[in-house]
C-alpha cells in the first residue's frame, strides 16, 4: 500500500515544529525524572524498600508524564484551524493522526524508554529486570500515546479538559500498567518474560490499527459540531 502524502507532510511539519521548540519537548521528560526523584524522598532511600517498588514507580511516572503531554496534542491545530483543513483534505484523516502520534511518541515515549535503565538503577531496580522493563516501556508507551490520543481528541474542544482527560484515559491505561509491572516481577522471579512482552506487543498492534480511527472520528466530530 502506498502511504499517502498527507502522512509524510504531516510528519515533516510536526517534526520541524517539535525540533524548533525543544523546551516543550523536554518538559514531560523532566516531569518524568522529577516524579521518580520524589519517590526515594517520599518513601525511603533504602534500596531494600525501593527495589520492589521500582518498576511500578517507573511505570506510574511514565503514565503521568504521557498524560501531561496529551492535552496539547490536537489543541493548537484546532485553535488555528489546521484541524478543519485536515478533515477536509482528500487523504483520510487517519494518516495525519498517525503521523502526529508518531512524532509525539518519538518526542516523549522513546526518550522516556531510553532513560528508564538509568532511572531504574537510581531506584535500585533489580538488575535482571532492567532490560525487560525497558522493553516493556518500548512496547507499552506507544499504546499509552494511542489510547491517550483518543481522550485528547474527545476533549479537544474544551478550554480546560485536563482533569477530564485524566479521568477518561487513566482507566484505559490500567492493563498496560499491569502488564508492564508484571514483566519486572517475572524477571525478578527468574521466569520468562517473553509471553508478557508478546501481550504488550499484541496490545500495541491492536491499538495501532483501531485507535487512529477512533481519534479521527472524534476529531471530525469536534470540527463538524464545533
Amino acid at each position: 500500500m502506498k502511504i499517502p502524502g498527507l502522512f509524510w507532510g504531516q510528519f515533516r511539519r510536526d517534526g520541524a515544529l517539535a525540533l524548533r521548540q525543544p523546551g516543550e519537548l523536554a518538559n514531560p521528560l523532566a516531569f518524568f525524572v522529577l516524579v521518580i526523584t520524589l519517590f526515594p524522598l517520599g518513601v525511603s532511600p533504602e534500596s531494600a524498600v525501593l527495589a520492589p517498588l521500582a518498576a511500578g514507580v517507573l511505570w506510574i511516572a511514565a503514565l503521568l508524564s504521557t498524560l501531561l503531554g496529551l492535552e496539547g496534542l490536537f489543541r493548537r491545530d484546532r485553535d488555528e484551524g489546521t484541524l478543519e483543513q485536515l478533515v477536509l483534505h482528500g487523504d483520510p484523516l487517519v494518516f495525519a493522526v498517525l503521523a502526529r502520534l508518531l512524532v509525539h511518541w518519538l518526542g516523549t515515549g522513546l526518550p522516556l524508554t531510553l532513560l528508564a535503565p538509568v532511572l531504574g538503577a537510581m531506584l535500585a531496580l533489580p538488575e535482571e529486570a532492567r532490560w525487560p522493563v525497558t522493553a516493556g516501556l518500548a512496547l507499552g508507551t506507544p499504546i499509552l500515546v494511542l489510547l491517550g490520543g483518543v481522550g485528547a481528541a474527545l476533549t479537544v474542544s474544551l478550554r480546560s479538559g485536563g482533569v477530564l482527560l485524566a479521568l477518561l484515559v487513566l482507566p484505559l491505561f490500567i492493563p498496560v500498567l499491569i502488564l508492564g509491572v508484571s514483566v519486572a516481577e517475572l524477571a525478578v522471579a527468574g521466569l520468562p518474560t517473553a509471553p508478557v512482552l508478546a501481550w504488550l506487543g499484541a496490545g500495541a498492534a491492536l491499538a495501532l490499527v483501531t485507535a487512529p480511527f477512533a481519534i479521527a472520528g472524534a476529531l471530525s466530530i469536534a470540527v463538524e459540531t464545533g
Binding site: 483518543v150 474527545l154 474544551l158 479521568l167 477518561l168 482507566p171 477512533a214 472524534a218 466530530i221
Partner: peptide
Amino acid sequence: LGIIGLRQALARPEAAGRACAILAIV
C-alpha cells in the same frame, strides 16, 4: 464517571452524544 463527565463538559448535545458514543465503544 468519564462518560458522564464528558457529556457534561461538551455543551452541544450533538457533539456530546457522538463523543460519548465513541468513548462508550472504546
